Amino acid sequence: MDSLVVLVLCLSCLLLLSLWRQSSGRGKLPPGPTPLPVIGNILQIGIKDISKSLTNLSKVYGPVFTLYFGLKPIVVLHGYEAVKEALIDLGEEFSGRGIFPLAERANRGFGIVFSNGKKWKEIRRFSLMTLRNFGMGKRSIEDRVQEEARCLVEELRKTKASPCDPTFILGCAPCNVICSIIFHKRFDYKDQQFLNLMEKLNENIKILSSPWIQICNNFSPIIDYFPGTHNKLLKNVAFMKSYILEKVKEHQESMDMNNPQDFIDCFLMKMEKEKHNQPSEFTIESLENTAVDLFGAGTETTSTTLRYALLLLLKHPEVTAKVQEEIERVIGRNRSPCMQDRSHMPYTDAVVHEVQRYIDLLPTSLPHAVTCDIKFRNYLIPKGTTILISLTSVLHDNKEFPNPEMFDPHHFLDEGGNFKKSKYFMPFSAGKRICVGEALAGMELFLFLTSILQNFNLKSLVDPKNLDTTPVVNGFASVPPFYQLCFIPV
């Protein structure tokens, strides 16, 4: 009986604490739906499609509103004006990374994606500088992407125009580009180590996009005490870190300090320079996690976009025909596509942009946080508050993009057929937390897609009208449904 009384008292205290925290903070924060004790607004949000729920709530509470995930307040920004004001106009104040408990377990605050403060700034600055020195957006990395595009075309030829699921092959190409940047090595598509790495990356994007992960991140005790797919994700990350550590040891034994070959060499050189400046942010643990982040951000996002792009091109054969006509006119058949071609191919450029806009790969991006107490639109948001960005509300804005739910390359073309930029184009987020590999991803999408369409016609196994382009999961990332196609050599 005594234990029951204690339990009831504990629960009562928890409920009172929950109510007090919510009521004391709500006077400062933007308005929002009334949260339930302990669980907050979790029942009012469709976990399978958070973005749709945010759109519905914005119609009631406006472009800036507050939700509670458990006891934790989260300020939501919906629509271009609110997102721009926060991420661009007040970029420094909104540059923090929001709480992501599962990532905390995986990387302990290291790396480039989930770190904060001085650690994040130094690692991000170093990573950007190193990638630029190796030619991100310049010639040397373009050579690597072109080489991988040629290998991709050869792998597709091996399908002999038979029906195939493109998931694996389209994942190999961007993964190999990242391998060449980090390890100075590309792998054969049949290499077992490479296959294991690909498998872990593919599993992780599916797990991260599941409703279960949303629950884990908002009720963090689940991570330590409950079984579930989150444990598989943590094991996959541990596998990748151990693999990278092996490569780091190989580099330490063979590195030429006067001739760095890749990202690992550059990081080890930085560690050597910083060894007298303790404590340094440049450690082996930081290198492991930064490399894992580059793999995660640079492989599955690009391969998922490529997979979605081919599905949309199957669905819209008239678009595919126009792209192939432009390829034939500008590039021809006797040389590989290059980035200089893009400025002469406005329709193809528009298609690449429209694919990214339409699929809305990361509907709410990753959570941000404010780095200080900030007054925002007459609300006071306390330091450390998590900020949720609705990228969907920007990419699918119906004023900027008429009929935003329709796939239409003319969203990025003017009346004369010239490519038209849009400030609403934010597939990689915006501001200080914009994806480090934005330029690389854009290069890969253009070169891989043009190389495929230069060499193959795409054949659907069903009537294009019957192809479903609805994402199968739409949590962290929008993942396309399973499909097969035939690559018919031109």
Rank of each mutant, 00 (worst) to 15 (best):
E415L: 05
L87H: 04
V83E: 01
L413P: 01
V76K: 00
G91E: 11
K420G: 02
T167S: 15
P63G: 11
V351G: 00
I88K: 05
E326V: 01
F187G: 02
S429E: 05
R124F: 03
I123P: 07
E274A: 14
V330Q: 10
R21M: 10
R377G: 07
E85C: 06
N277K: 14
L102V: 11
S115D: 11
K432L: 10
V479L: 15
G46D: 12
R26F: 15
D165F: 00
E155D: 04
N334T: 09
L245G: 15
V237E: 07
P489Q: 02
F428L: 06
N204W: 04
K315A: 08
S53T: 11
N217C: 12
L268W: 05
N204Q: 05
F282L: 13
I42V: 15
E326K: 00
H396V: 05
H316F: 09
E328T: 11
D188L: 05
I264R: 04
H276R: 12
N474A: 10
S140P: 09
S280R: 08
V75R: 00
V76N: 00
L287M: 07
E92Q: 07
D143W: 04
E155I: 04
L447Y: 07
I50D: 02
P63E: 09
S390A: 08
C10T: 15
M269Y: 09
I223L: 14
M426Y: 07
I123L: 12
S343E: 11
L313D: 01
V370A: 12
V351D: 00
T450E: 00
N107R: 13
F226H: 02
I222F: 09
I207F: 13
F448M: 05
I215L: 10
C435R: 02
L366G: 04
S242V: 04
M339A: 12
L388F: 11
I434N: 12
L67K: 00
E250K: 08
D191S: 07
K432Y: 15
N202L: 07
I39Q: 02
M271H: 06
Q356G: 04
N457A: 07
I389P: 08
V177R: 01
M257V: 14
E354H: 01
L11E: 01
L314A: 09
R21N: 10
F69V: 13
V323D: 01
P166L: 00
V355K: 00
A291G: 06
R186C: 02
M269K: 15
L19K: 12
T66S: 06
M426S: 06
E354N: 01
L413N: 01
F412H: 03
L102Q: 08
L156H: 00
K72C: 04
I389M: 12
I207T: 07
N259I: 05
L131P: 02
H353A: 11
V5Y: 14
Y379W: 08
P221L: 09
R139T: 13
V436E: 03
Q192M: 07
Y424E: 07
Q22C: 10
Q484N: 10
A439R: 06
I244T: 04
G431C: 04
E288R: 10
C266L: 10
R97D: 08
H251Q: 04
L311I: 06
D256G: 11
K247S: 09
F134E: 14
T305L: 09
H251S: 06
N116L: 03
V75D: 00
N107G: 14
C216T: 09
V237M: 15
V355M: 11
A297G: 07
S254P: 05
F476T: 09
E328Y: 15
Q261T: 07
N56A: 15
S140K: 07
T130H: 13
P227C: 08
Y347E: 02
G137A: 10
H78A: 09
S422A: 09
N218R: 08
C338Y: 06
K423P: 15
R125H: 13
F487E: 00
P33A: 00
N277S: 12
S429N: 10
A149C: 09
S303G: 11
G332R: 04
K399P: 06
P402Y: 06
F226G: 04
W212K: 07
H230M: 12
P481A: 10
M406Y: 11
R329M: 15
F226Y: 04
K270G: 06
I88Q: 10
N466Q: 09
G417T: 04
A309V: 03
K52I: 04
Q484S: 07
M345F: 00
D165H: 01
A350P: 01
Y80P: 05
L312Y: 01
L67G: 01
T450S: 12
Y358S: 04
A149K: 00
Q214V: 08
S58A: 13
T450R: 00
E354A: 02
P337T: 06
E438T: 08
K119V: 08
T283I: 06
D165V: 01
R157L: 14
V319D: 04
T283R: 05
L458R: 01
K72P: 00
L361K: 09
R377T: 02
L16Q: 01
L195S: 09
E272H: 11
A161S: 14
H411G: 01
F126W: 13
R157G: 06
K84P: 01
T167M: 05
V355G: 00
S280V: 11
S303R: 06
C435E: 14
L71S: 13
F168K: 09
A297R: 14
M426Q: 06
I45E: 01
E92I: 06
I389E: 04
T371W: 08
F448A: 01
I181S: 02
K28P: 12
R357Q: 00
E142V: 04
E142P: 02
L17A: 12
R377Y: 06
I178G: 01
F168C: 07
M426E: 04
I222P: 06
R186S: 02
L71E: 15
V370G: 04
D143Y: 07
F425M: 11
H276Q: 10
H344R: 13
V323I: 15
K121P: 12
R26I: 13
N398P: 13
I488V: 15
I181L: 14
F219G: 03
D188A: 09
L14W: 12
N466T: 15
